[in-house]
Write a protein that binds this DNA or RNA. Structure first.
Lengths: 194, 194
DNA sequence: GACCTATACTTTGAGCCCGAACGGTTTTTC
DNA sequence: GAAAAACCGTTCGGGCTCAAAGTATAGGTC
């Protein structure tokens, strides 16, 4: 049971493991709980709402972004949905094959890709979103409106810190060292002989 | 930029899209921010700390659980790490191939799988965890200790609600209907003729 | 022992995930 | 106007993700 008991108990065990090295318990608890909450919410919404429409969380978020903002450039959708460009390509492929999303070229800039919902996509969102929002209310129902606002504000501080200072921090940590490439990723094509 | 501006603006657009259907803005904002924060924190920690040791977030969490709790049964590790048993199988395969984790049989129950860290795994955690915790402090550095405690408490309410009431809620929503099987997943083997 | 049920891990299939490399377009620079 | 730099979406590789199905063990009943 990934609950509070484990987290507070774990704190003592961590201290023991490190033998004296100071550990920031509150900070550790915040990060752990952010992640637990995100996973719990996602799982609940997928099973309670999205599953019956055969949507994943990410697919829903992408649809939502396009629904709300209207026809959008691909890079903006990826940004808003919080996924990489490469991931978006795959998600769009899935959604397009189901007839929920349409791709079209930008009239003046040949590099850009425009995304919009089909009629079926619009209809799906009108049907699914109210149920989705109802479950958002359910998962937060132990908090009153003030507590919700406070929680959202606190979380925003974390997001802002990473967005505004994260890059700088990462650079400082690496301190000039090369950024340690991922083990995975596309291999460089060997130059052809001849 | 997936920040606050987008979320509050989106609220108005949602209302317009649905034409009158009430939307719980505070709840929507909480869920959206939980997810944004989780993604931001994960990304920062992976790039700032884990990447140089060639660890993913999930791999680190699994190692952490085994490190803290000592030799553990597989199902408990999956539960604590917040991933499914099936996912754990794959993660353990990766970690075992790198010599960080050891699998062993339970002495009396042949179904159980025991997981423990190798010496190399222990050494890795002793080295990586302090850096990890330092970045946990960094991402939460706009909050003081009290705010951290409040934030963790609020998030715990969400987790508890889903854990204690989620199952019941999902059943009530489906209302006896079959749970809409996933499109993906293993296919049933066709019964052999003859 | 044969049967049945419960439990635990693995396999499978479809899909998401990132970031590096890539090919194409546009803009900038000289 | 040609080369260079910047930008965009796609491809690719390794890995994680789930749940359903499968395999194997354990514990009970007859």
């Amino acid at each position: 049971m990934p609950g509070q008991r484990s987290i507070t108990e774990a704190e003592k065990l961590v201290e023991a493991k490190l033998g004296g090295t100071p550990v920031s318990h509150e900070r550790m608890a915040v990060v752990a709980n952010i992640y637990r909450a995100a996973a719990a919410v996602r799982q609940h919404l997928e099973n309670a709402v999205l599953r019956s429409s055969d949507l994943t969380w990410t697919a829903f978020v992408v649809l939502w972004v396009i629904w709300i903002w209207g026809e959008s450039e691909s890079r903006h959708v990826a940004e808003e949905a919080g996924i990489s460009k490469g991931t978006l390509t795959g998600v769009i492929r899935t959604l397009e094959s189901r007839g929920l999303v349409r791709r079209s070229e930008h009239p003046s800039d040949g590099r850009l890709l425009l995304l919009s919902l089909t009629g079926e996509g619009e209809e799906l969102m009108r049907r699914v979103f109210p149920d989705f929002n109802a479950e958002e209310s359910f998962v937060t129902s132990r908090l009153d409106d003030d507590a919700c606002r406070a929680l959202a504000t606190g979380l925003r501080q974390v997001v802002l810190q990473v967005e505004e200072k994260g890059e700088e921090r990462r650079l400082a940590l690496l301190d000039g060292a090369k950024p340690a490439p991922r083990r995975s990723g596309r291999r460089r094509q060997a130059p052809r002989e001849g």
